[in-house]
Amino acid sequence: MKQSIVLDLSKLPAHGLGAASLTWWGTLAFMLIEGTGFALSIVVYLYLMSLAPQWPLNAPPPDLLPGTALTALLVASFLPNILVARWAGQQNLEKVRVGLIIMSLLGVAPLIVRIFEFPAMHISWDQNAYGSIVWVMLGLHTTHIITDLIDTVVLTCLMFSRHGDNPRRYGDVSDNAMYWNFVVATWLPMYICLYWVPRL
């Protein structure tokens, strides 16, 4: 088939940023998958609750302190996270490096608090269905914190390497920041479900 050139694209940028980036859309799609998973876990929680004669099943409501502390930490991490995304948008290498180190630490901190959160539930996964869903919800969210922490640490190393100062990497940093916002945002309904619904 013969070709006739009707469009010249040589002036287009060699990499798309934000909504023009494929990874941005891919991250959104994975957030949709995982968000559906989180939502379903809440549905399972409420479903089991609707069947139970009393709720929580054979356990007091969870202690508020560790979960609330973790929530506060996650919400507090929101601000530096937004800043990292902004610095990545400005392609400011020094600030992005510092910001990523802070975000790595802010990824470790909630994991430490989470260690105290499991016992604060006053139930084990193998005692009854309430314990099972509580542990699975906490486990599911913990997996997401760990995944994003590894991602952030690897990105931090990357930004200190010779590959760092590149529009593509800055795009990765802002996508990673977006994903952390997702990890924070999905926790809020789970926090209400785990800590406050049993107190209704």
Partner: peptide, 11 residues
Amino acid sequence: PETLPVASGLS
């Protein structure tokens, strides 16, 4: 069916 309009300028 004979000619395809195309874009140029890609690496």
